[in-house]
Amino acid sequence: MINFQYIRTTTSKAAVDSLGKDKTAKFIAGGTNLVDLMKRGVTAPEKLIDINNVPLKQIELKGNILHIGALATNAAVAEHAVVKQRFPLLSQALNAGASAQLRNMATVGGNMMQRTRCGYFYDITMPCNKREPGTGCGAKEGYNRMHAIFGTSEACIAVHPSDMCIALAALDAQVVIMNPKGERKISFVDFHRLPGATPEKDNNLQANEMIIRVEIPLNTLAENSYYLKVRDRASYAFALVSVAAGLELKSNRIIKVRLAMGGVAHKPWRLTEAEAFLTGKDATEVNFKLASEIALKGSKSFGQNNFKLKLAPNSIIEALNQAKSKA
């Protein structure tokens, strides 16, 4: 690993300022992804700005909105009483990710910023447009069992590895971002982006911006929600496919539904058409199946991940079944 300059900041303003001054600088919080990437030579920042002392760890309900600071750890959010009670989907998703140790280190902001786990991205001797634009995509005709079936491009078929973000996408969260001019707020589903011709950009955060917090509005889904994660072993593995499902039911009639998928796209994949189809219908296996078929529209596989065309709809049905049976 190249040596680097290391500085600590205590305010978000100072953090944003120092980021603006140095293009080769990066923030470090939990470090669980960044240090890994630095060890592998995937990234080599010349300066690290340690933001752990910036006071952004709050988890609090303000009116109808839950505010989660960007530096709240994954474990702190997953274990928080309000989150467990009012947003169990988020708690479940967080606990489905990584390990207890990593969740103690990783932060909400860092989780959103984590890079794909595509093997070609991680191996600096392999081609990867995300790591080194123009070198090609190693996965498209290579080992792509874990890869995307939605929103892929010629340049990239990687998936976003987060579980937390899948739940946040389903829960209509907003992201509050700070830049030198002030703050801006964007919808969580617009935070991450599809690869297109510029897969090196994972999200719409600008170079001089910092995630301050995530806001989640209270909802009516808490009683009937479920995070399903299908993976190659029972724990401590990335998703083949995951589904965040939340239902508001009135005697088996679906009043409201939220669905998002992980392991299938370059960003958390919100299933708005399937949601629209299910809204107002009965929560039946038949309707779940029809919704899962709608959800698969536009999907495309690359050989080794062909199975996801079956696993994804099946997982939607299973997640809805589980969410429903929670009542």
């Binding site: 093997g119 070609y120 191996d123 001797t125 392999m126 190693g138 005709e141 290579g142 080992y143």
Partner: peptide, 9 residues
């Protein structure tokens, strides 16, 4: 990955 002869996982 046999194109490169290299382990990918």
């Amino acid at each position: 990955d046999h194109r490169y002869g290299k382990f990918i996982n």
